[in-house]
Nucleic acid binder design. Structure first.
Lengths: 188, 188
DNA sequence: ATCGATGGAGAACGCACGTTCTCAACACTT
DNA sequence: AAGTGTTGAGAACGTGCGTTCTCCATCGAT
């Protein structure tokens, strides 16, 4: 019964493939990275890659979906250690500050994918919208718990900070957005 | 002395070329549009196009630069009709609301270009940063005139609104950002 | 009217991409 | 141990890109 062995290998290869794709696509853009480069970075054969995903678009969507899980889990884990609702919302911006300062930070993978493929690939567009909606809803819960009706402004501050830090390469938008969010939430 | 005639024709052709490039690149993305399509839309010969710009990258940069002029002029003309400093800043968001509602609105051309070419083309990256800096400085003047130190938050609200409206296709971020900006500026 | 240069149209080129195919090596069955 | 199906590695294929080249029409000068 060797089936479990190949299943385990599939799992690992699939993860290696998505790791390689995510890193390359985020670093250099999706269209700028060829499937052959993904093959080299993942140490898989092209045939095996196309067995996992029938086309590049499917790989991109799967990569975005898995990144969405990781990204939102990481954020939630970080902010939900803080129990005070107001401080919890402000912690979102602390998490952003850490993210912006990471080497290789290049802005939001979904916004970048949207700029690149939003008009060419309906599947990618749907994935981008799905991520933004999911993040919005997650954030909305945290903001609503403060009792102050500022969900939309706080969301827009986050998006503005991510975009601005991504383009300028400067992490200070996280600080500015945090200060503004604190003002909108009012003095405690 | 026929020189003025060819100079005038150059001016017109160059404008037609940049018009066509701007429309196509904004609608469908830069990498998704080939030079042959730009040729067809501009009704120029490929040879003539390459006489104006030695490569596609130069055309993209020139297109972004001209769009920057038009975009910021349009915004400035709109908001500078309003003399009250506070209302002038809020008018920025009214201008955004009109822009977002335009048919074919697809977010910020510079953010999209950054997502597509920011890591591949230093010239495009520089042009994107230059535009964002220029807009930031323009906005900073208007905000400073209110006497309230909220330049950065207002800037981030604008960026967040543009990105969110571009992805979702919904113009309401302009309203939400306006409300938040009014709150940050304080009650008059 | 003829010559020569200029410029237009688009065919042609080289390259790189996404995808598919070939074929040899291997593992598992009888 | 021989056969058979499956897999891996990468060559091959078709397409479409950015760019250059070829040819021919046009037009001003002599």
């Amino acid at each position: 019964m060797p089936a479990p062995l190949t299943e385990e290998r599939d799992r690992l290869d699939r993860a290696a493939l998505l790791d390689a794709a995510e890193r390359l696509f985020y670093e250099r853009g999706i269209q700028a990275v060829g499937m052959d480069e993904v093959r080299a970075a993942s140490a898989l054969s092209l045939k095996r890659i196309y067995r996992f995903f029938p086309g590049k678009e499917d790989l991109v969507v799967a990569m975005l979906r898995r990144r969405d899980q990781r990204w939102r889990d990481s954020l939630a884990t970080f902010v939900e250690r803080i129990s005070d609702p107001r401080e919890r919302v402000l912690a979102v911006f602390d998490w952003l500050a850490e993210w912006f300062a990471e080497p290789g930070f290049r802005g939001c993978a979904w916004i970048n994918a949207h700029g690149e493929l939003g008009s060419a690939s309906a599947a990618v567009l749907a994935e981008v919208r799905s991520h933004k909606q999911a993040f919005h809803d997650q954030l909305a819960e945290w903001v609503r718990a403060t009792g102050v009706a500022v969900v939309e402004p706080v969301f827009l501050l986050v998006e503005g900070a991510v975009v601005t830090a991504g383009i300028s390469g400067d992490p200070s938008p996280a600080r500015h957005a945090r200060t503004a969010a604190a003002a909108l939430l009012g003095t405690p």
